[in-house]
Amino acid sequence: MIHFDNVTKVYTNQNRPALDHVSVDVDKGEFVFLVGPSGSGKSTFLRLVLKEERPNSGAIHVAGKDLARLSNFKVPHLRRRIGCVFQDFRLLPNKNVYENVAFALEVIGKPRRFIRKVVPEVIELVGLEGKAHRMPDELSGGEQQRVAMARAFVNRPMILLADEPTGNIDPATSIGIMKVLDRINRTGTTVVMATHDAAIVDSMRKRVVELEDGKIVRDQSRGVYGQAY
């Protein structure tokens, strides 16, 4: 599903590469934690998958497409198959829960009948039934992140990228968020989650890829956050 082959990314005006000869394979339906200290290259990895950045060398394949050969014109179509969740939720403050989720479908031109059908379904999936008409500022951080996940998942993407989704949320609420991510993963969606949260990684027992200074230092199935001996 995601295939990195010897990928190096150096940002302009920086000497040290953000990713340094990284090769990794993520299969369809996998759940992968991307761990490592700040600046280790986690976010760069996610941005490369979205083709927001281009690698300096190496090849990236996402959903069977070679990103180097993907024209700019087709990048939006790639992104429609990838859902994204962020630490800061990125909801539209002047739209309610339903409208925030529906927005993702409206802007890719989905018919209204389809939107009316799938948005309530996905709001229920993330556990926000009955809150469709709340505004974002009336919701807790955990609930806002659920809205963001609903928006990321409403178009049934093949891949869900989560960049520290529990970063702004207390540990108790984080468990609920992880349950939703797990539920999404069980529908067959590949989930890649970048995180600092050791407790969550340890409790989930999923594949862990650890980055340090842009290099993969550990790739372990059913791993934990810290070094496993």
């Binding site: 939006p76 802007v107 890719i108």
Partner: peptide, 17 residues
């Protein structure tokens, strides 16, 4: 910028944005 950022993210076409 929020709206356009999200539009980009969910794969709205350039024309639509």
């Amino acid at each position: 910028r929020r709206e356009t950022g999200i539009m980009r993210l969910v794969g709205a076409s350039n024309l639509y944005i």
